[in-house]
Write a protein that binds this DNA or RNA. Structure first.
Lengths: 229, 229
DNA sequence: AGATGTGAATGAGTTCACAGCT
DNA sequence: AGCTGTGAACTCATTCACATCT
């Protein structure tokens, strides 16, 4: 049930190159730090301390240091971190220095919504194809691609060179669609279906459940409870 | 920095009525259990054990029991849980027994995508209004409503009786839009902006950052690491 | 002096084993 | 017998205080 599996070969000194298995929670924060740093960089700020970063973006300074320190010694003691250098490091760590092609499976409301949203995004993530089993949706043009039928899934994945599968099918078909993507050679899956999928070892899977987030909020609305993150 | 704040007055025996401050993580799972139970109920299954529930949906049986036990004694020892009764209990716990009206602030790609997605959803969550500061977008019809200008935010919130604000503005304007929603009397906010907002005590805030999830996946793609949740 | 990097202490969350009902 | 409810062990994550470097 754990995630681990560390593939580093034990360097003599902690180097900036390969990272030694970062925990998902830490990773999420790092991803967020990166975005903060980009904003600061755009403002022309060249250096920032963990304290100031924490103050500006509502974070915890010791945690920033812990998160960053595990990747190598990026900071300058007595000074802080260099924004541009850190941005560089974190980007390559997360694999954002290259393009990631995505296929969306299930072009219902959520699927086409995400296609439009992600399609216009010109970052490292790019939607290259959409698939649906409903004949009415096949052939429809959404953003920069045309919806293809479910039977062509494997072919579409291979031809488009997609790495990431985006699952937006109903709960019932989610596991089957996931497995089909894996069989077709997809390297990772992000699942928006309202169900939990059994992951295939070696193919990372990330669940994002919008309804759960709404329902969590609904719960806190009733209580006279304070804030939470 | 903690979330807590418990408002219960200490009943003699643990009752099914008011719940004693459930942790967000536990809450997310409960929300998911509810969905699983609904599927089982639709299949006609009247009773289910934690073990079987875990097996079917890839969960942990002891955790299911812990999560449910903290809400009261819903199970029957030696038998399991009654699906319909449990669905009832969890629904009211989460506040899904009534309608929640939502206003979307920021009708860009993500905002209008969500509007369409949530708009067709006929559950307890209902999008009743959309707001944007761009004059070009104002007046546009999206789903069942017409986009209104930013100046009318307070008025729209009050007239529509919206409880939940959905933030889909760029990072720069997020805090200001959030505060405006709070001032207008919104009761909770779900934030899709790629930035962290300083919450106002008493108004629950939930961050959902799609980009972070994608970047987390991108990281795991590079490594030859196994699965994770 | 000032800020990072890090081990120790604290806290939260999960797993486990079993007592207690039915 | 079977399954829930729960205290205790354990793992994981965060916070803190301080040694270390510039």
């Amino acid at each position: 049930m754990a995630s681990g599996v560390n593939g580093t070969s034990g360097r003599p000194r902690k180097a900036a190159g390969r990272s030694p298995s970062v925990s998902p929670l830490s990773l999420n924060r790092i991803s967020f730090y990166l975005r903060c740093l980009k904003r600061l960089d755009a403002e022309g700020l060249e250096r920032i301390s963990s304290k100031e970063l924490a103050r500006r973006f509502n974070l915890s300074a010791p945690q920033i240091r812990k998160d960053l320190a595990q990747l190598g010694e990026f900071g300058i003691r007595g000074v802080g971190y260099e924004t541009s250098a850190l941005i560089e490091h974190l980007s390559t760590l997360l694999g954002l220095d290259r393009q990631h092609r995505m296929v969306i499976v299930g072009m219902g409301n959520l699927g086409s919504a995400l296609a439009r949203y992600l399609g216009f995004n010109s970052g490292p993530f790019q939607v290259v194809a959409g698939i649906d089993k409903d004949p009415d949706k096949v052939g429809e043009r959404i953003g920069s691609f045309v919806v293809r039928p479910a039977e062509e899934l494997a072919q579409v994945v291979r031809c488009s060179g997609a790495e990431i599968g985006v699952l937006t099918v109903p709960a019932d078909g989610a596991q089957a669609s996931h497995d089909a993507l894996v069989d077709a050679g997809i390297r990772g899956v992000i699942n928006f279906s309202p169900t939990r999928i059994r992951p295939v070892p070696g193919v990372p899977l990330k669940d994002v459940d919008l309804r759960i987030h709404l329902e969590e909020l609904a719960y806190f609305l009733q209580e006279r409870q304070g804030q939470h993150s």
